[in-house]
Design a protein around this nucleic acid. Sequence first.
DNA 1: ATGGTTTTTACTGCGTC
DNA 2: GACGCGGTAAAAACCAT
Length: 321
Amino acid sequence: MSEHTNTRTRSTETEAENERDETTGCPECGGKVAADSEHGEAVCIDCGLVVEEDAIDRGPEWRAFDSAEKDQKSRVGAPTTNMMHDKGLSTNIDWRDQDAYGNSLDSRQRQKMQRLRKWNERFRTRDSKERNLKQALGEIDRMSSALGLPENVRETASVIYRRALDENLLPGRSIEGVSTASVYAAARQAGVPRSLDEVAGVSRVEKSEIARTYRYVVRELGLEVAPADPESYVPRFASELGLSEEAENRARKLLGNAKEQGVHSGKSPVGLAAAAVYAASLLTNEKTTQAAVSEVADISEVTIRNRYHELLEAEQDLAFV
DNA sequence: ATGGTTTTTACTGCGTC
DNA sequence: GACGCGGTAAAAACCAT
């Protein structure tokens, strides 16, 4: 703080610290000149004129504009250890109402200690949440980029996680699990869904646990996640298979028809999307094999076959109406 | 826990290049 | 003969009850 205020307002404590050199007066106003060894300057106390500079500056070579930044840039301080959850930086207050010699405290002191304990605990849990959050956000970031999800999905996932944390949904659940569920939910909300399998692929958590946690989080947070729309998978599959715009649109149309006829209820959206993409590739004469589609969609060929028959039937039925 | 539905696995036969 | 495709039966996974 004080080291960054400007020369003029440098306070009297600086004057007290720097004992030497009040011999020469300030050339400007004749006032006293105090040496500021930290900045290698000699400054007039009255008018703030820098009388001498470029002496040895013992201050840090960086500047910081608030205390947080200062903490970050500073390279000094107590050694930290990674073995403790908080790197050993938090405070502990003994629960006993005794002083260092084992004598009990008077009631006034006891009350004071109670208060201190309470607040210490509050701060500590607060930053335990911070740490939790930090780790989770790291995970979210890692998974999102592994899944090729855009920035805004990461944002959403982070927000979801924060809410889960605020509402105390974490106890009993792993950070990993909840962050994965957040990513999954965020991707779906943003209309760029990834299948549970895909998400599970980049997570350290079992698929079943992700699903469980996901349901839990969605329920507790009252998140509104519409059932995944098959169409939202289409662009990704199409591009991974190198299909044309035309095929992509064709696939959408097929899905649209299917939707109107209600063919798709209960079927997995991914399978439907995969089938539509495959069917569209046939209709537009772009060669793709069922195997390739099943590969990118993570769906068995059998399912693709079944679905795409249904799609074509729906298409025909529609033509009659 | 159970039963019904959907998906997957594994296998087979057919046609084409 | 390898490949793509279609079909089938049984197993597994999933979901609602």
